[in-house]
Design a protein around this nucleic acid. Structure first.
Length: 573
RNA sequence: GCGCCCGUAGCUCAGUUGGAUAGAGCGCGGGACUUCUAAUCCUGAGGCCGCAGGUUCGAAUCCUGCCGGGCGCACCA
C-alpha cells in the first residue's frame, strides 16, 4: 500500500467514524473525496477536499465538516498537523518520520517500488507500430513504437496483464506491389539490368530480398506469368521484411508478444461480418456523396455497409467494395473481433496522426462487437519533425531516401531516442534535433536525468575512494532539507498510477525531470555550504544517511527509466 | 460543408482528470563563481489560460457558440 493510499484510508476511516457518531449523515457518497499532495508545498504534504465534496449532500457547511474531520485526523500518530484552509481544504502535515519510513520502504522494495495493483485482474491489449511490411522502419514509425511500448510497460508496472501486439498489413494491394518490386530485384540478382517503374518500391532494401529469392528459386520465375509467383513472392518478401522490421524494433528494445497477420484472418472476416449482421448492423446500400469538395470520380455504388453511424460515427462504413471484395476496414473489424474473442478487458490502439479519421469507425465496430463492454482507446501519435541543428532534414519518400530508424538509433543511441519520444504528449508535434538530443546541458532532459543518476553513483564511488567506513544509515540524521528529496521520490507510485490511468507514458519523463531537478538542487546546496554535501569525510554517519537518501532517488530514477525502456547510466562521458 | 485534434509567459511545452495565488525550461534583467559538488548556480520581471456565455462552493480543465491553426473526409492501406 502506497503512502497516499494509506492516508486516503485514514481519511475514509475518519469519515466513517464521524458517520457512526452521527456527526455526518449516513450513506454519503465519498467517491469524489481525494487525498493528494497540494500544488503549493506550503500547504503541507497532503490535502483532502472531503469537506467540500460532502457539504452539499450532507446539507452542512464545508468548514463545519472540515473542523470535525481535521480534529480526528490530527490525533493520528503520523500526522503532525491538520489545518482547515481556504474554502474547506484540510491540509495535512506529516511527521518527518513518515518520510524516513518511506525511505526504508524505497530501499526494501527497490525495483518494485512504485508497482501498483490497480490493474490486477485486468487484461489489456496494446497494439502499436503495425507498420506495413513494405520497407524498413523509418522515423515516421518511431514515435508510435516508443510511446506504445512505454505505455505497455506503464500498464504492466501498474499491474495490468498486458499483451504487446503488432498487426501486419500483409493482405492488400500494397503487398502485391511489394512482391512485384521484389520480383524485379530477383531478376536483377540473376543478372538482368532493371528499371524500377513509377509506383513500385524503389528502395535498396529489396536488393538482398531479391538475392535471397534468387538463391532459393533460381531462375524458375524469371519469365513466368505473375500468377505463378505472386503469392509466393508476397509471402516470402513479407516474411523477410518482418525479420528486418523486428530487428529494427529490437534496436529500440522493442519485442512484441503477438505479430498478427492480416492475411491469416481468413474466414474470420466473414464471421465478423455475420456477427454484426446477426445484430442487424449490416445492410446493402449506397453512401451519400461526401459534402464540400466534390470528388470528381464519385458515383453512387451499392456496397455492403456497417451501421457505424449508430455508434457515434459520422457515416456508415463499407465492409465490402462494390466488386464484392473486402475493404481494409472489414479486415480490421475482424482483427479487433479476434482480439475481443481473446478476452481482453480493454483494447488500446496507437494510430498515426494521418489515421485520425479512422478512429470513430474502429471504435464503433468494437462497441458493436462487444456490446459496448470493452473500451477501445485509440491514442493518436503526432508527427516528428527531424532537424539537424535547427534545419529540417530532407526526406523524399519517392526515391526511397528516408531516414531510417536504424540510422537514428545508430547515431544517437536507443536511450536518447526513447526518452525524447516521451518528452511531449503524444498528440502534439515533436521536434527531434540531432544536435540537441545529444547535448550535455540543462536543456536536454535525457542528459539532465541521466546526469542526476550518474552523480548519485559517483558520490558513492567517491566515498569508497576516500576510504570512509560507512555505518548502517541512521535516517534520524536527515533534516527537512534532505527529506524534501524523499517527498519528491515518494511521488513515484502516484505518477505510475496516473500515467496508467491516463494512458500517458510521457508523464514518467516529466516526473523524472522534476525529480532530477530536485536532486540537482539538493546537490548544488553543497556548493555554498560544504556541510550539505553528500560525502563528508569527517562524518561517516551523516554520509551514510545522505548516500542512502541519494540511493533512494537513484532507485526511483532507475525504476522510471526502466518503465520508459531507457537504461540508467552510472557515469557519463 | 462535416468530423477529430490543438490554442496556456516572447519561444518550446507541463498542468495531479474540477481545487487554493496557473508552473518548468529556454530567452530577457540583476547577482554569484576564476572552481572541480560549475558539463553552472541564485534571483527578478513576464499571464484576459484564443474570445463570449453557461454548469457549481470552485473552471486552463466540463457544456454551448464563435475566432484562429493542423489533420481527415465514399471502394486505398
Amino acid at each position: 500500500m502506497s503512502l497516499y493510499q494509506r492516508f486516503s484510508a485514514h481519511v475514509a476511516d475518519a469519515l466513517a467514524a464521524l458517520t457512526a457518531a452521527g456527526d455526518l449523515p449516513a450513506g454519503l457518497d465519498t467517491r469524489a473525496v481525494t487525498v493528494e499532495p497540494p500544488r503549493d508545498p506550503t500547504h503541507g504534504d497532503l490535502a483532502t477536499n472531503a469537506a467540500m465534496v460532502l457539504a452539499r449532500p450532507s446539507g452542512m457547511k464545508p468548514r463545519d465538516i472540515a473542523i470535525m474531520l481535521a480534529q480526528k485526523l490530527a490525533r493520528l500518530p503520523d500526522i503532525e498537523a491538520a489545518e482547515v484552509a481556504g474554502p474547506g481544504f484540510i491540509n495535512l502535515t506529516l511527521r518527518p518520520d513518515v518520510w524516513r519510513a518511506e525511505l526504508r520502504h524505497i530501499a526494501a522494495e527497490a525495483s518494485d517500488y512504485g508497482r501498483s495493483t490497480m490493474g490486477a485482474d485486468h487484461r489489456v491489449n496494446v497494439e502499436y507500430v503495425s507498420a506495413n511490411p513494405t520497407g524498413p522502419m523509418h522515423m515516421g514509425h518511431c514515435r508510435g513504437a516508443v510511446v506504445g511500448d512505454a505505455l505497455a510497460s506503464v500498464l504492466a508496472y501498474a499491474g495490468y496483464g498486458v499483451t504487446r501486439e503488432y498487426y501486419i498489413n500483409d493482405a492488400g494491394g500494397q503487398v502485391d506491389t511489394l512482391a512485384r518490386s521484389a520480383h524485379l530485384r530477383y531478376r536483377e540478382a540473376l543478372g538482368e539490368t532493371i528499371a524500377i517503374p513509377e509506383g513500385f518500391y524503389p528502395g535498396d532494401y529489396l536488393v538482398p530480398v531479391g538475392e535471397a529469392l534468387a538463391r532459393d528459386h533460381g531462375d524458375r520465375y524469371v519469365g513466368a506469368p505473375e500468377a505463378e509467383w505472386l503469392a509466393l513472392f508476397r509471402r516470402e518478401t513479407v516474411a523477410l521484411m518482418m525479420i528486418r522490421i523486428r530487428e529494427d524494433l529490437k534496436l529500440l528494445g522493442i519485442e512484441q508478444d503477438v505479430y498478427f497477420s492480416e492475411a491469416s484472418l481468413g474466414n474470420r472476416v466473414q464471421e465478423a461480418l455475420e456477427t454484426l449482421d446477426a445484430k442487424g448492423l449490416i445492410y446493402e446500400g449506397v453512401l451519400e456523396a461526401p459534402k464540400g469538395e466534390t470528388a470528381e470520380d464519385w458515383e453512387p455504388r451499392p456496397q455492403t455497409l456497417f451501421r457505424a453511424s449508430r455508434f457515434g460515427d459520422d457515416s456508415d462504413r463499407a465492409m465490402k467494395k462494390s466488386d464484392g471484395s473486402w475493404t481494409y476496414f472489414a479486415g480490421d473489424v475482424a482483427y479487433h473481433w479476434d482480439k475481443l474473442a481473446r478476452g481482453y478487458d480493454a483494447l488500446v490502439d496507437m494510430f498515426g496522426a494521418d489515421h485520425g479519421g479512422y478512429v470513430k469507425r474502429m471504435q464503433a465496430a468494437v462497441k458493436a462487437l462487444s456490446d459496448g463492454k470493452v473500451p477501445l482507446d485509440i491514442k493518436i501519435v503526432q508527427m516528428v519533425k527531424l532537424l539537424r541543428a535547427g534545419e529540417p532534414v530532407k526526406m523524399s519518400k519517392r526515391s526511397g531516401n528516408f531516414v531510417t530508424l536504424a540510422d537514428v538509433v545508430d547515431e544517437v543511441g536507443k536511450d536518447v531516442v526513447r526518452f525524447i519520444m516521451l518528452t511531449k504528449r503524444s498528440d502534439s508535434q515533436l521536434d527531434f534535433d540531432f544536435a540537441k538530443v545529444v547535448e550535455q546541458s540543462r536543456d536536454n532532459p535525457v542528459f539532465y536525468v541521466q546526469y542526476a543518476h550518474a552523480r548519485i553513483a559517483s558520490a558513492r564511488r567517491k566515498a569508497v575512494e576516500a576510504g570512509i567506513v560507512l555505518p548502517d544509515p541512521d535516517f534520524a540524521l536527515l533534516d527537512d532539507t534532505d527529506l524534501a528529496l524523499v517527498k519528491a521520490a515518494a511521488q513515484w507510485p502516484r505518477i505510475v498510477e496516473q500515467a496508467a490511468e491516463a494512458r500517458e507514458p510521457h508523464r514518467i519523463a516529466f516526473y523524472l525531470g522534476d525529480l532530477a531537478a530536485a536532486f540537482h538542487t539538493h546537490w548544488n546546496l553543497g556548493n555554498d555550504d560544504p556541510q550539505r554535501r553528500l560525502v563528508l569525510a569527517d562524518n561517516p554517519a551523516l554520509t551514510a544517511a545522505r548516500l542512502a537518501l541519494a540511493d533512494a532517488v537513484g532507485q526511483v530514477i532507475r525504476n522510471g527509466l526502466s518503465v520508459m525502456g531507457v537504461e540508467a547510466a552510472n557515469e557519463l562521458h
